[in-house]
Design a binder for these strands. Structure first.
Lengths: 115, 115
DNA sequence: TGAACATATTCCGTTAACGGAATATGTCAA
DNA sequence: TTGACATATTCCGTTAACGGAATATGTTCA
């Protein structure tokens, strides 16, 4: 299928493991030319180019032509969308933490009282 | 393609808009039977079932049989993976915020001095 | 102008995902 | 046990994504 989520949103973009790898790469090492990423990922040059194309379309990277090279740079803002979405659920797992914490305190209390 | 990311990880699971909708639904309204989600999403029953299947395989929801119904519940922990991944890039957009902030302060300062 | 280089684009084969309709499975209630 | 109900599974058609090889495009330098 795929009539719906054509590679046009950040969520789909980061679904691809290799793409996530590329993004991490750019985050860790700063702006990078395509060739370097080809080396580091072990993918074919065409594949890397295409992945970068997707990331670019979605606004996750920007390009800077420098002579023959094209330097890709991470546009981290684009990830805020995802961050914000996931963040909404933080409370749900905090609930659990809270419950665990409460339980632990309960235990500590009854332990204290049993002395 | 897809030899790589068969719907087996959370990132792929949340790439699907309808699936995200379902997840949000479960977060907002708590555990829900399939039928309700069919109504709320406007998808065919089979589709919803299948999406829930994916979410379940990935550990994002758990099921509880109650009579004829199956109550699906969000397992928010599963989203931590995503949260943590995205979080790594937080500093990168904070940088920008910092820069903007600095610039704003700069401006305020020179404004003060020009008085 | 023509090599050499870096990258994008095209081409092609393969595969899995999706949607919906139809059907199977399981559960309750009479 | 039969029927109604809730949900899962199967079937089928359609489509887009991926990978890599080959090729096109653009840039630099002699």
């Amino acid at each position: 299928m795929s009539p719906t989520p054509t590679n046009t949103d950040v969520f789909t973009a980061i679904a691809e493991p290799k793409r996530r790898e590329i993004v991490s790469l750019l985050a860790k090492r700063g702006p990078l030319p395509v060739g370097t990423m080809v080396d580091l990922t072990g993918l074919a040059q065409s594949s890397v180019s295409k992945h970068l194309g997707v990331l670019h379309d979605v606004g996750m990277v920007s390009v800077d032509r420098q002579g023959k090279q094209r330097i890709y740079k991470l546009e981290a803002n684009s990830l805020k969308t995802v961050f914000e979405w996931v963040k909404e659920f933080e409370s749900h797992w905090d609930h659990q933490l809270a419950r665990i914490k409460a339980k632990a305190e309960q235990r500590a209390k009854s332990l204290r009282e049993s002395n």
